[in-house]
């Protein structure tokens, strides 16, 4: 028995490292879980992309749930996510707010003209301050905010049809249930 101990220890270590490798294939290791989930979304007031004389703030959006999608014309992944937003997310009926993050408005507009505009409203966060308040650190990112203005869910990276099915739909169902 005692002579087997080192061997057992070795296998335990192999098991542990193997588990780590398996776990890493199942998880996004660069993902930083947001501390904002379950907390009120940060206050913001941002100019509308298509009419910078007008602005949209958190207070304007209270009363109905919405999905904030952080994008930028500089963001390559956003191009892949964009048709998915148009085809899979927009039909869900959730209000879709685009946040053009760290992107000159002219570039955002050109990008949207090229790839289409699935958003109900687009705000421009050109200097990225509001993005920092939301804890954004890459694009695309999406935040599901409920009618009371509380962040319910965050997606870091693009939505795929599978992720919409597995994560977004259940969260939307929860919101619908919560409604009296």
């Amino acid at each position: 028995m005692n002579r087997l101990l080192p061997l057992l220890g070795f296998f335990a270590l192999v098991g542990l490292l193997g588990f780590g490798m398996w776990w890493n294939t199942k998880h996004e290791t660069n993902e930083v879980p947001s501390p904002l989930i379950g907390k009120p979304a940060p206050e913001f007031t941002l100019p509308l992309l298509y009419d910078s004389t007008k602005s949209l703030s958190k207070a304007d959006l209270l009363g109905k749930p919405y999905l904030v999608n952080v994008f930028g014309s500089w963001c390559a992944t956003c191009q892949y996510e964009h048709p998915i937003l148009t085809e899979k997310v927009k039909p869900l009926g959730i209000k879709l707010i685009g946040m053009a993050w760290k992107d000159p408005p002219e570039d955002s507009k050109r990008w949207l003209a090229r790839f289409g505009d699935p958003y109900d409203a687009i705000v421009s966060d050109a200097d990225g301050r509001t993005g920092i308040d939301f804890g954004v650190y890459m694009a695309p990112e999406s935040f599901l905010v409920d009618a009371q203005g509380v962040i319910r869910y965050k997606r870091i990276g693009m939505f795929t049809p599978e992720l919409i099915e597995r994560e977004l739909l259940p969260e939307l169902a929860k919101l619908r249930q919560a409604k009296p």
């Binding site: 930083v32 879980p33 947001s34 501390p35 904002l36 920092i132 308040d133 939301f134 804890g135 650190y137």
Partner: peptide
């Protein structure tokens, strides 16, 4: 920063 980006 922690309030926005976690202890990370």
């Amino acid at each position: 920063l922690v309030a926005r980006y976690n202890d990370f």
